[in-house]
Simulated scan of single mutants.
Amino acid sequence: MTVRFIVLGCGRIGSMHAAYLHRRVAGAEVVGVFDVVAEAAENVGAELDVPVATDLAAALAIDADAVAICTSTDTHVDVMIAAAEAGRAIFCEKPISLDVAEVDRALAAVEAAGVSLHIGFNRRFDPSHKAVADAVADGAIGDVEVVNITSRDPAPPPIAYIEVSGGIFNDMAIHDFDMARYVTGSEVESVYALGRVRVDPAIGQAGDVDTAVIVLTHENGCLTTIDISRRAVYGYDQRVEAFGSSGMAQSNNHHDTNALVATAGGYRQPPLQNFFLERYTASYLDQWEAFVAAVENGTPTPVSGADGRAPLVIGMAAKRAMDEGRPVLITEII
């Protein structure tokens, strides 16, 4: 079986997903694309030699099995509901929405339609991060006690993006909240967060912070610490460590190459890979293969709607914790 996809949204992430699906994912092909910016859709359609729809209704009228929702966050819910009502299996980029009630509305429509839904938390599929989660799940490091996550971008995004992003907790850290649940295998009970503006005063003027530390308490007793920054001058810094009663598992940074030069003057390594498109290529491909397999076999998707909802709630709790200077229980949000 070949799973036929319509790609909805042809910006940077949508065009990447379209190319991967059409050229690099076994058992998948793109049969149509759509974007509200016609030129973006036309460029992707021409590159892949697939039809370009003029609107969402026309896109969903294309004979297909699944959609990839890569549109702007504020459109995800309505697009997801339309796709569910059209009977399409759904891949949706994170976050589903910045509003929990809207997330619930979308998930209710998906459940009513009985279609598959996968949320794009690709970092779960990174081979290095997955090895850490596997070491916890199979008991190799004993009972997990502390998880440490470092997530630092090489440079902040434009202020115009910051203003509509939902803030650092629901934009940047949302991946880390998902990683915390994934690695520990346990839901979050409470959240404490501190945030500061250390990189660019304009980020503060936009109502956000650019540097933060978050502590999560999990139901199984594990503690997760997360430190995030919008600027790491040395490259894209992505590390995960799980410490347990019988050992430790660690996922380290990826360099442009694994070469190491040692001289009397010291050691030299190539720089870190500079951003997510390079660092997480393998995770995107593995994620697509897992979703395609789930659609083909009629099995549950690896990252469910509930998995998409939980990090948003954690992010909301983190923002409240920072604003109010106290730990916030998840039950205060949901």
Score class of each variant (00 low, 15 high):
Val191Glu: 02
Ala140Leu: 11
Ala140Cys: 05
Pro201Tyr: 06
Asn148Trp: 05
Asp153Phe: 11
Arg230Cys: 11
Asp171Asn: 09
Leu194Thr: 08
Gly114Pro: 03
Gly235Lys: 09
Thr225Tyr: 07
Thr211Gly: 10
Ile203Val: 14
Met179Val: 14
Gln205Ile: 08
Pro201Arg: 13
Ala155Asn: 12
Arg198Trp: 04
Ile119Lys: 02
Thr184Asn: 05
Thr150Phe: 11
Pro158Val: 01
Arg239Phe: 02
Val215Ile: 13
Pro157Tyr: 02
Met179Arg: 09
Val188Ala: 00
Glu145Leu: 15
Ile226His: 00
Phe121Thr: 00
Arg196Cys: 09
Ser128Gln: 04
Asp134Pro: 01
Asp176Gly: 10
Ser229Gly: 14
Leu117Asn: 02
Gly221Asp: 08
Val191Asp: 00
Arg181Lys: 08
Asn220Ala: 11
Arg123Asn: 05
Val115Glu: 06
Thr150Ala: 12
Leu223Ile: 15
Gly207Trp: 11
Val209Ser: 08
Val164Ser: 10
Gly235Gln: 08
Ala140Ser: 15
Arg231Glu: 13
Asp178Trp: 04
Gln238Val: 09
Arg196Glu: 14
Asp138Arg: 05
Ala206Pro: 15
Phe121Asp: 03
Val188Phe: 00
Met172Gly: 03
Pro127Ala: 01
Val215Leu: 15
Val188Leu: 02
Val240Leu: 09
Ala131Trp: 00
Gln205Phe: 08
Ala113Leu: 12
Thr224Ser: 14
Arg230Gln: 13
Ala112Thr: 07
Tyr236Phe: 12
Val197Pro: 09
Ile214Gly: 02
Asn122Trp: 05
Asp134Phe: 02
Ala202Met: 10
